[in-house]
């Protein structure tokens, strides 16, 4: 049963990911990205990582994708054929990389690894607590660095976009 579900999720992820880059209208691309995010969340559920699955939906599907859609609708981006001129080259290079990846990963021993050897998820009921523990003990330092990154991104967006922060001189340019 798990295997069937896995292949369902994986197939949809691959198909929608291809659609994201292959579709000509940006809105359609964004919507197929949304479908992809949901199925990635499904994969996380299969791995007993329900917290990550929830975060995946709340953050990616809920926040980031809605933001994309806002921008797309506000800017009224029309279908741009310019990006599709490289389609053939992209296809050839992409296929080459794909064959290479299949060859390399096929020999890497990832496939033979017994899934049962993977340690079971955190012993606590639900893995929210386990993630919280790991985040605030083992990964405390990276966690704090990530907060600095978010701070920079926030202030940077203001600096690059807010009107009039350089005073009146700006207009004369």
């Amino acid at each position: 049963m798990t295997l069937v579900l896995f292949f369902y999720f994986a197939a949809v992820i691959v198909a929608t990911a291809i659609l994201v880059v292959a579709l000509h209208k940006p809105i359609y691309s964004a919507l197929s990205l949304l479908v992809m995010f949901f199925h990635v969340a499904g994969l996380f559920v299969l791995l007993d990582a329900e917290f990550i699955a929830a975060v995946q939906i709340i953050v990616y599907a809920g926040a980031i994708l809605v933001l994309y859609l806002f921008v797309l609708m506000l800017l009224n981006v029309r279908a741009d054929e310019g990006y599709h001129q490289q389609f053939r080259i992209g296809l050839i290079v992409g296929l080459a990389v794909l064959v290479e990846a299949i060859f390399v990963l096929g020999q890497s021993g990832f496939a033979d690894r017994d899934p049962a050897a993977v340690p079971p998820a955190a012993p606590v009921p639900g893995n929210t607590e386990g993630i919280g523990r790991a985040l605030y003990t083992t990964y405390l330092f990276p966690f704090e660095v990530a907060s600095l990154i978010l701070l920079v991104a926030m202030i940077g967006a203001i600096i690059l976009a807010k009107k009039g922060i350089f005073g009146k001189e700006e207009r004369g340019r």
């Binding site: 990276p142 660095v145 600095l148 990154i149």
Partner: peptide
Amino acid sequence: LVTVFLGLELMSITFYI
């Protein structure tokens, strides 16, 4: 590698701005 990557991103994002 986690620390390395986050440090690299902190530096890069600051430079983009």
